[in-house]
Design a protein around this nucleic acid. Structure first.
Lengths: 376, 376
DNA sequence: TCCCTGGGTTGAAATGTTTCAATTGCTGGT
DNA sequence: ACCAGCAATTGAAACATTTCAACCCAGGGA
C-alpha cells in the first residue's frame, strides 16, 4: 500500500561521458583561433569596419546591396559583436542591477515581474543579485555593477547604513531603494508603510483578545524589522497596554523558513507563560513557525494564532491558511522601475521622490481568539 | 470584530518630492564632467598608468610608498575601474549567466543557492535571467550574455529546439543544460530523471486505486512535460491499463498557480466522468489547482487526490500537505555549476557529461484512495 | 565644361584598460 | 671606478568598437 519506490539517497546515476563534440572540424573552441571581430566581417564583405558598424547600428543609412552583403558575412562567419568594446566606446550599459536580500523569498520574486515589465519597455536588461543579507556580498555586487557602468541599481539594502549608496549615487549611478524608505530623501525610494503594517497586525491580534504576542523579528539592522516592530508596539500602546508585558521578541539571524523554525524553539524556551499569538516578519518565517508548531502538535490557531507578512502566493493555501499583511508587489516593482528611469536619466531638474504604498490586512484561518483570553 | 483596517486600494500616499542632492557641489552627475580614468589617478599620484594598473592587479610588485600614494589617490578621487575596458583587454568576463524558465517558481530559486555556492568559490558572479517561457526573450538574453563574453551559461531552455545552444557552444561559450537531458550529449547536462518521476507519481496514484487521473501538463515543447507524461503513461501501461482511458490531459499555457487554477476548470468541464486524482506538472500548478478545488468546495484528498512535482519548500505545509516528487535541488545546482566550470575551461580533453539524479516520492496528506474506487 | 549637391563609404581618433619590453636608478661586488 | 644584477617604473601597443570629418563619385543645373 505505501509507496516504497523512493531511492535511498538521490544519487546521480553513473555519469556517462562521451566524446566531446568540441573536437569536430567546425568547432571554434580550444583551437586558439582568435575570436572574430568587425575587421574580419569587413574583410569578408569587402567593406570598411565603419560600414560594418553602420550596418549594426544605423542600417537605414547604408545602401541596400552593401547591407545585404555585410549581413551575409556576419551570418556565415557567425560574428557576435563585443559588448565590452561597444560599452567602452558608448560609456553606458543597457542592464540595470537589482540587489535583493534573499532571492529564496517569494516576496522578492513576486516584485520582480513589476520591475521587469517596465524596464523591458526601455530595452533594459535586468540583472538579479541576491545578497543573502550579507553586507559584504552586497558590497561586492554593488562594486561589480558600478564597474560595469550600469545606469542604475534597485536595491533592498542588507544593512542599516546606506552611506555607501549615497556615495554611489553621487558618482553618477541611479539608485532607488526598494521596499525601504529613503533616508531623509537623499535617495529615491519605493516602500510600503511598514510601521502601519506592523500596527495592522498588532491591532488584529489585540482585537482578537491576545495579550501575549510572540514576535519573530529579524535583526534590527534591517530597517523593515525595526519599522514593523515599532508598528506592533504602537498598536499595543494604543490599546493601553504595556509593550514589554505583551510582546516577547526573538531576533532571527536569517529570515527564512529555517529561521522561523528555530526561532519558535527559542521563543517557547523562554521563561514565563508562552504567547498565544505569533507575529512573523514574513511569510517564509511564518512557514517555518507553522512547520515547527505542527511537529509539536500545537493547534493553529487554537493554541497559537499566527500572522505572517507579505501575503505571498502560497499564503492563502497553507494549513491553516495564513493571515498576513499584503503588500502591492507588482505596483511596488513597477513604481520602483519608473523612478529608477527618471533617476538614472539624471536630469538636473529631477527631485528625489519617496513613494509609499499602504499595506492591507488579510484575515484568514491562522488567527482567531485565544482559547482562554487572559485578562488585560 | 472583523478587522476593517484595510485601505480600499493600496494607493501611494502623495509622493513628496524634495530638492535633489544631485546639485550639491561635490556631485559629479549631470555636470558633463568626464568619468575618471586611470590617467587621472596616475596624474594625481605622480606615476604612470602602468603603475596604477599594477596597484590594482599585482600590488605585491609595487614599492610600498608608491602603493600607498596611488591607493590614496584612488580613494580621494573616488576612482572606479571600468569593467568594459578591463574586459575588452582581458577578453573574458567574470560573470556567468543562468537563464531559468520562471523565476517565480520556487523550484528555480531553490536550485540557485547550489549554483551560487560553487561559482562564488571561483569568484564568479551569477547573473539571473528569467525567460518566462518565451523563446524570444530567451534568445534575447542569450544574445546579450554572449555579447558580454560570459565564459558560460546555465540554462533551462524554454523551447524544444536546442540547436541554437549547440551553436552557442560551438562559438566557445560553456553551456550546461539545467534540469534537462542534453540531446544526445551534444551538450553537458544535469537533470533529474523526469520519466521516473512521472512514473513514481503514476504508480502511487494507481496503487491507491485511482483509475481516472487528470494530468495538468505543460506545453509539449518543454521537455520535462513530455518526459513526466511518458512516465505517467508507462506506469499506467505497467499496471495493465489503457492510458487513454485512465489519463485525461490538459495542456496549460503557463506553468504557474494561475495556470493550474484555470487548467482545473478546463479539466472538469470536459465530457465523461471527472477524474478522482490529479497529477500536476509542478507544485505551483498544484497550488493553483488546490485553490480552485477549495473554492469549489471539493474535498482533498476525499473527492480529488492531488500530487505535485518538485517538493518546494511550502509543499509540506499546504492545506492539505502536498504529496510531491522531490528533486535534489541543491545538489542539482552544485553539479551544474561544477560541470559548467569544466566545460567553460574548454580543455581539449573534456568530454560531455550528463549527470542524472533520481527523484523521490514524498507521500503526504493530499493523496489517498478514492472514495469509491472505480473498477479497473 | 564646370561646379555643386548629397548619398555612401572610408580612415583614423578615441574609449580605458592590461601587458610587456625597455628603461631607470640602486646596491654590492670586484 | 666600473659593471652586473635587480627592483621599480615607464611607455606604447593591443583590445573591438563608435563616431565623425573627409572623401569619392554620380547626377543635375548653369
Amino acid at each position: 500500500m505505501t509507496e516504497t519506490d523512493k531511492t535511498a539517497e538521490a544519487s546521480p546515476s553513473r555519469p556517462r561521458p562521451r566524446r566531446s563534440a568540441k573536437l569536430d572540424a567546425e568547432d571554434t573552441r580550444a583551437q586558439g583561433r582568435r575570436r572574430l571581430s568587425m575587421v574580419d566581417v569587413a574583410a569578408h564583405a569587402g567593406v570598411s569596419v565603419g560600414t560594418v558598424s553602420n550596418v549594426l547600428n544605423r542600417p537605414e543609412i547604408v545602401a541596400r546591396p552593401t547591407l545585404l552583403r555585410v549581413k551575409a558575412a556576419i551570418e556565415t562567419l557567425g560574428f557576435v559583436p563585443s559588448a565590452p568594446a561597444r560599452q567602452l566606446r558608448a560609456g553606458a550599459s543597457r542592464s540595470v542591477g537589482v540587489v535583493v536580500r534573499d532571492i529564496g523569498n517569494p516576496f522578492f520574486t513576486e516584485v520582480l515581474p513589476g520591475i521587469e515589465s517596465r524596464l523591458s519597455e526601455e530595452q533594459l536588461l535586468l540583472v538579479v543579485c541576491s545578497s543573502n543579507d550579507s553586507p559584504e556580498k552586497e558590497a561586492h555586487y554593488l562594486q561589480t555593477l558600478e564597474q560595469h557602468r550600469v545606469p542604475g541599481i534597485l536595491i533592498t539594502p542588507a544593512g542599516d547604513d546606506i552611506g555607501h549608496l549615497v556615495d554611489l549615487h553621487r558618482r553618477g549611478v541611479g539608485v532607488v531603494l526598494l521596499d525601504r524608505p529613503g533616508a531623509d530623501s537623499q535617495l529615491c525610494a519605493v516602500a510600503v508603510d511598514n510601521v502601519r503594517g506592523g500596527e495592522l497586525a498588532g491591532n488584529h491580534l489585540l482585537s482578537l483578545g491576545h495579550r501575549r504576542i510572540g514576535f519573530l523579528n529579524g535583526p534590527p539592522a534591517i530597517r523593515q524589522c525595526r519599522d514593523r516592530r515599532e508598528g506592533l508596539l504602537r498598536a499595543v500602546r494604543n490599546a493601553g497596554l504595556a509593550p514589554d508585558e505583551v510582546v516577547t521578541e526573538v531576533t532571527l539571524p536569517v529570515l527564512n523558513a529555517a529561521g522561523g523554525e528555530a526561532g519558535l524553539d527559542e521563543l517557547l524556551a523562554m521563561a514565563g507563560p508562552p504567547p498565544t499569538a505569533l507575529f512573523c516578519m514574513n511569510d517564509m518565517v511564518a512557514l517555518g513557525a507553522l512547520r515547527n508548531l505542527e511537529q509539536r502538535g500545537m493547534a493553529v490557531p487554537g493554541e497559537m494564532a499566527v500572522v505572517g507578512y507579505d501575503d505571498v502566493e502560497f499564503a492563502a493555501l497553507l494549513s491553516p491558511s495564513l493571515t498576513s499583511i499584503r503588500q502591492p508587489k507588482q505596483q511596488l516593482g513597477r513604481a520602483a522601475a519608473e523612478l529608477l528611469l527618471t533617476d538614472a536619466r539624471g536630469d538636473a531638474g529631477h527631485w528625489h521622490q519617496e513613494i509609499v504604498f499602504q499595506p492591507e490586512l488579510v484575515v484568514r484561518a491562522s488567527s482567531s481568539a485565544p482559547a482562554r483570553p487572559s485578562a488585560g
